[in-house]
Write a protein that binds this DNA or RNA. Structure first.
Lengths: 237, 237
DNA sequence: AAGGTAGGGCTTACGGCGTAAGTCTGTCAA
DNA sequence: TTGACAGACTTACGCCGTAAGCCCTACCTT
């Protein structure tokens, strides 16, 4: 009753696919991926659920586009930069981006349709490595090990039951109390002697592993490039 | 009509929580995690959906238990074994297990309630490292970098649009045809000159990165253990 | 100016989901 | 014999994604 379409003209302004995409990302950032339903997304945009389907084919396509948008946020500075700081900086940026959009990693597992930004990102990384003298095979190795590390680290970081050092103190304290002391002795030692110390933050572990990998790649590169290598440690098995 | 409860006695046999758990894992293994619904799981067990709630509190608890069951499958052989082959073997086993249960990784992101098997697995790894002379801090570093790598590698592996070399040939071929040749030149080079070559399998990349990390850890350990170290390459920042 | 078209809203409806709440029945201890 | 209880079943609710179709209005053509 009372014919509720006076707002039609006002609402009729824009609403592009881009807006839908960004609203979806904002919704997932704020409430987790489970909060992202077509109805709630429509609500947030002030329209009905079915109207979304004028802008995206279906929810799956929307999710694909969201993942690609995340890749677009990762900074890849490769112009004339030495490969090691470039890769280091990209790893840091990738980690920050994936933490900012905690839902993104979990979605990568299930969708195999890389978007344009994803491909561009990968191409830039490979280009940086090739320009630095990596063989095609070594570039593939480097790409694989670096991305695996980044994704895996963030996956573990997201899996932690705390997001900041204060949480950590509280959580580890409560775990310590609830567990019989000798069931997991080494886990216990790790918590009491290391993790629960003031100043510890799991995020700091990122740089250790990243530099370990970059140094390893540098050696692998050097073994090929300068054959006087007194350090040839790669490959143990 | 014809009062359909004659089977009551026959059906009344067991159905323990264990059976529910394993049926759930089998269902998820076969059809993906989306196929695992309480109704379908009940169907498979020959009961009604609501009867499952006598054995699990809710679906979330079931998912937690499933993840823990996956950790139980990872072989951790640390008894009197040198740390390097022990960690290597555990990494291989973890990768195989996570590939066998492709749904497990995607679930880890969202649940922060480690089960008994999970904690045992972590404790065994830490124990192995500590016995080998790793300091608490270095053991934490090692644990972080190894698990990050394993999880991330499997995540990428699952993300690939192919599961075996034959698929790869076909997929990379079709991508090559559909793309303008100069949009992603380095990606293109990687595919034509390396990935699409006979004998290439992404799975083989796993060992390169794994050994790179293990060698890096060995150096980090050596720098502390034997102070004559002419090789001190860790940390570049 | 008049009319046609189509973009982008809206409504209705369907089958599937997790699960709250309650019922029925066979088994076993007292 | 009886009463409690474990473990099945039934019903129902409010979510979900989306198929199908309607209808208004801005714009383009004539």
């Amino acid at each position: 009753m009372f014919t509720p379409q006076p707002t039609t003209t006002a609402r009729r302004s824009p609403l592009s696919r881009e807006e839908v995409l960004h609203a979806a990302i904002r919704l997932a950032d704020e409430g987790g991926i489970a909060e992202l339903t077509m109805r709630k997304l429509a609500d947030k945009l002030g329209i009905q659920a079915m109207s979304l389907y004028h802008h995206v084919a279906n929810k799956d396509e929307l999710l694909d586009a969201m993942v690609d948008a995340v890749f677009r946020e990762i900074e890849v500075v490769t112009e004339n930069a030495p490969w090691k700081p470039a890769m280091r900086q990209r790893a840091v940026s990738a980690r920050q981006t994936l933490l900012r959009h905690a839902w993104a990693l979990g979605m990568m597992e299930s969708r195999a349709n890389p978007g344009q930004a994803t491909l561009e990102c990968h191409d830039a990384v490979l280009g940086c490595l090739r320009r630095a003298g990596f063989s095609v095979a070594l570039a593939a190795h480097a790409f694989s090990v670096l991305d695996s590390y980044i994704y895996g680290f963030v996956l573990q970081e997201l899996n932690l039951p705390f997001q900041n050092p204060d949480d950590l103190q509280r959580v580890s304290g409560s775990i310590l109390q609830n567990l019989p002391a000798d069931t997991y002795p080494h886990l216990m030692e790790m918590m009491t002697a290391h993790v629960s110390q003031p100043g510890y933050a799991y995020a700091d572990e990122f740089m250790f592993g990243l530099d370990l990998i970059l140094d390893g790649l540098e050696q692998a590169l050097g073994v090929r490039t300068q054959p006087d290598g007194c350090v040839a440690l790669t490959g143990s098995g």
